[in-house]
Every structure is written in C-alpha cells, then in structure tokens.
Amino acid sequence: SISSRVKSKRIQLGLNQAELAQKVGTTQQSIEQLENGKTKRPRFLPELASALGVSVDWLLN
C-alpha cells in the first residue's frame, strides 16, 4: 500500500514525518494521515515521490 511504502522509504532515508513534510511542502499531520492509511491519494503525490527519490508509479503499485 502507499502508506507502507511511504513509511518504509521515509525511515530508510532517516527522515521523520516533519522532515519529510517540509521537503514535500505539506504538514506533518498530512504525512501522518497518509502513513496511517487515512489518505489514499494525496494531492502532493508528485512532490512526495520526488522527496523520497521514487516514482509516482512505485508509490501507487
């Protein structure tokens, strides 16, 4: 799922939720909701993929 991929990649990069949120241009709460499965397809998906160094396709599939 996107939530597990985001969380595992974030941890692999040594980032906390607030640091990832800053790179993406969103809030820590938005990252938390995404990782908890409350958000399925965030509006900041391209920025998120870029910050994590992955493709949008990788996040979604």
Rank of each mutant, 00 (worst) to 15 (best):
S1E: 11
S1W: 09
S1C: 14
S1R: 09
S1K: 09
I2Y: 01
I2N: 03
I2P: 04
I2S: 03
I2D: 03
I2T: 07
I2M: 11
I2L: 15
I2V: 10
S3K: 07
S3Y: 03
S3Q: 09
S3W: 03
S3A: 14
S4C: 12
S4T: 13
S4E: 15
S4Y: 07
S4K: 10
S4F: 07
S4A: 14
R5K: 12
R5N: 07
R5L: 10
R5Y: 02
R5S: 04
R5H: 04
V6N: 00
V6Q: 00
V6W: 00
V6Y: 01
V6M: 06
V6C: 10
V6S: 07
K7C: 07
K7N: 06
K7Y: 05
K7R: 14
K7V: 10
S8A: 14
S8W: 11
S8V: 10
S8F: 10
S8M: 11
S8D: 12
S8C: 15
S8N: 12
K9C: 13
K9N: 03
K9S: 08
K9D: 02
R10L: 04
R10I: 04
R10T: 15
R10C: 04
I11H: 10
I11Y: 06
I11N: 08
I11Q: 11
I11P: 02
I11V: 11
Q12V: 07
Q12W: 06
Q12L: 10
L13I: 10
L13T: 05
L13E: 05
L13F: 03
L13V: 07
L13A: 08
G14S: 05
G14Y: 03
G14M: 05
G14H: 06
G14L: 05
G14E: 07
G14F: 03
L15Q: 04
L15W: 13
L15N: 03
L15F: 11
L15G: 02
L15A: 03
N16P: 05
N16Q: 09
N16E: 10
N16L: 08
N16M: 07
N16I: 06
N16G: 12
N16C: 08
N16W: 02
Q17W: 12
Q17G: 06
Q17P: 09
Q17C: 11
Q17A: 11
Q17I: 12
Q17E: 11
Q17T: 15
Q17K: 07
Q17S: 09
A18Y: 13
A18R: 15
A18G: 11
A18P: 05
A18M: 12
A18L: 14
A18V: 11
E19Y: 02
E19T: 05
E19N: 06
E19F: 03
L20K: 01
L20A: 02
L20Y: 00
L20W: 00
L20T: 02
L20G: 02
A21F: 00
A21I: 01
A21Y: 00
A21D: 01
A21E: 02
A21T: 00
A21C: 04
Q22V: 11
Q22N: 10
K23M: 15
K23R: 12
K23V: 11
K23F: 10
K23E: 08
K23I: 15
V24T: 09
V24L: 08
V24P: 00
V24A: 11
V24C: 13
G25D: 05
G25R: 06
G25S: 05
G25I: 03
G25A: 05
T26N: 04
T26Y: 03
T26K: 06
T26M: 08
T26D: 04
T26Q: 10
T26R: 06
T27W: 03
Q28K: 13
Q28T: 14
Q28S: 11
Q28R: 12
Q28V: 15
Q28A: 13
Q28Y: 06
Q28N: 07
Q29C: 09
Q29F: 12
Q29T: 11
Q29L: 13
Q29K: 14
Q29S: 11
Q29H: 13
Q29M: 12
Q29D: 15
Q29V: 11
S30A: 15
S30W: 15
S30E: 15
I31T: 01
I31L: 08
I31G: 00
I31N: 00
I31K: 11
I31Y: 02
I31E: 00
I31P: 01
I31S: 00
E32Y: 06
E32M: 14
E32R: 11
E32V: 12
E32H: 10
E32S: 11
Q33P: 01
Q33D: 15
Q33N: 14
Q33I: 08
Q33Y: 11
Q33M: 14
L34D: 02
L34C: 05
L34R: 03
L34Y: 05
L34G: 01
L34W: 03
L34P: 02
E35P: 02
E35N: 05
E35R: 00
E35K: 01
E35L: 03
N36D: 12
N36Y: 06
N36L: 12
N36Q: 12
N36H: 09
N36A: 15
G37A: 09
G37M: 05
G37I: 03
G37S: 06
G37F: 04
G37E: 07
K38V: 14
K38R: 12
K38Y: 14
K38P: 08
K38L: 14
K38W: 10
K38E: 15
T39R: 08
T39S: 13
T39C: 15
T39E: 12
T39N: 13
T39I: 15
K40N: 13
K40S: 15
K40Q: 14
K40L: 15
K40V: 14
K40C: 14
K40A: 13
K40D: 15
R41W: 15
R41C: 15
R41T: 14
R41L: 15
R41N: 15
R41M: 15
R41Y: 15
R41V: 14
P42I: 14
P42E: 05
P42D: 04
P42V: 15
P42N: 07
P42L: 10
P42R: 04
P42S: 07
R43N: 14
R43H: 13
R43M: 13
R43F: 11
R43A: 15
R43C: 13
R43Y: 12
R43E: 14
R43Q: 14
R43S: 14
F44L: 06
F44E: 05
F44H: 06
F44D: 04
F44C: 08
F44K: 07
F44G: 04
L45E: 02
L45T: 04
L45Q: 01
L45K: 00
L45H: 01
L45I: 10
L45G: 04
L45S: 03
L45M: 09
P46R: 13
P46Y: 11
P46K: 15
P46W: 10
P46M: 13
P46S: 14
P46V: 14
E47R: 11
E47I: 08
E47C: 09
E47K: 11
E47F: 05
L48K: 00
L48W: 02
L48M: 05
L48F: 02
L48N: 00
L48I: 08
A49R: 00
A49N: 00
A49K: 01
A49C: 05
A49F: 00
A49S: 06
A49P: 00
A49G: 05
S50T: 12
S50H: 12
S50D: 13
S50G: 11
S50K: 14
A51I: 10
A51T: 07
A51P: 00
A51L: 09
A51H: 06
A51Y: 05
A51R: 02
A51V: 12
L52P: 01
L52V: 02
L52Q: 01
L52I: 05
L52F: 03
L52Y: 00
L52H: 00
L52A: 00
L52W: 00
G53V: 14
G53W: 01
G53I: 03
V54Y: 01
V54P: 01
V54D: 11
V54H: 01
V54I: 06
S55T: 15
S55H: 09
S55N: 10
S55C: 07
S55G: 08
S55R: 06
S55E: 11
V56H: 05
V56S: 07
V56N: 05
V56E: 12
D57R: 08
D57H: 09
D57C: 10
D57L: 06
D57V: 05
W58T: 04
W58D: 06
W58I: 04
W58P: 02
W58Y: 08
W58E: 07
W58K: 03
L59M: 04
L59F: 06
L59N: 00
L59R: 00
L59Q: 00
L59T: 00
L59I: 09
L60G: 07
L60V: 13
L60R: 09
L60T: 13
N61C: 11
N61E: 12
N61W: 09
N61Y: 11
N61Q: 12
N61H: 12
N61S: 14
N61K: 09
N61A: 13
N61I: 10
